[in-house]
Computed example of a mutant assay.
Amino acid sequence: MKKITLLGMLFSLCFSIGHAQENMTIKEETTVKRVVKKEGSTVVVQEVEATTSEKGAVIVADNEEENQVFSEKSAVEDKEKVVLDETALDEKNEAMIAARKKAQEEELKRSIEEAKAKAAAERKKLEEQEAARLKAVEENKKQLEKRGKGVGKLTKKKKGN
């Protein structure tokens, strides 16, 4: 029994000494980014967890001095993990887009009708002006053809005379 107790104490002492000599430094930073993108009526929600960890060991000289100078050997590791990635449709936005498209189509139809009506009114005005001009030309022609009593008929001049 004495041997077993002594062996157990020796084993636990070795384990605690070995464990106590391990000088490790561990720093870990975790950042969670939530990104919400709205593209039309589609809503994309994405959560990314970025972890930066720095693990290192403290290195000291293996002598028995107090307040020894130490150095630290460390390795930096970056990890990114997508926690949430979902896509959803925003029905309210979808309805607003549909209503806006419908209003634009109605506005386009209305403006086309107005343009056609304006073009028809302009055409009618031009036709009236053309008719008035032709009537004025006819009246002017009749007035010019009308001759007084003493005036003879108009004759065309021949070349060579």
Rank of each mutant, 00 (worst) to 15 (best):
E106A: 08
G40V: 01
Q46W: 05
E54P: 03
E106W: 08
A98T: 07
L126W: 14
R110P: 00
V45T: 14
A103R: 13
G40K: 00
V69H: 10
L10T: 09
H19I: 07
S71I: 14
I112G: 04
T42K: 09
T30P: 02
D78N: 13
S111G: 04
L89K: 12
E106G: 03
I26Y: 15
I4N: 05
K55W: 09
E105K: 11
V36F: 02
D90C: 00
E65F: 06
A75F: 11
A115Y: 09
C14K: 02
E72R: 03
I4D: 07
E106I: 08
V76A: 03
K124L: 10
F15G: 04
V60K: 08
A117M: 13
S16V: 13
K3M: 09
G8A: 15
E80S: 08
E91H: 01
E54V: 15
V43L: 00
L6F: 13
N67S: 09
K92D: 01
I97A: 02
F11E: 02
N63Y: 01
E80D: 11
E86L: 12
A75D: 11
S71P: 04
T87L: 05
D78E: 14
K109I: 11
L13R: 02
E105V: 12
E66G: 08
E66S: 08
S41M: 07
S12M: 11
G40R: 01
N63H: 03
K125Q: 15
K116S: 07
I4F: 14
K27V: 08
K125S: 14
K33H: 11
E107A: 15
A95M: 00
A103N: 07
A121E: 13
K124G: 03
A115G: 10
E28V: 08
E94H: 06
I26D: 06
Q104D: 15
K92V: 00
A120G: 04
L126Y: 07
T87C: 03
A57G: 09
H19C: 12
E122Q: 13
T52S: 12
T87H: 04
E80P: 01
L108H: 12
N93E: 14
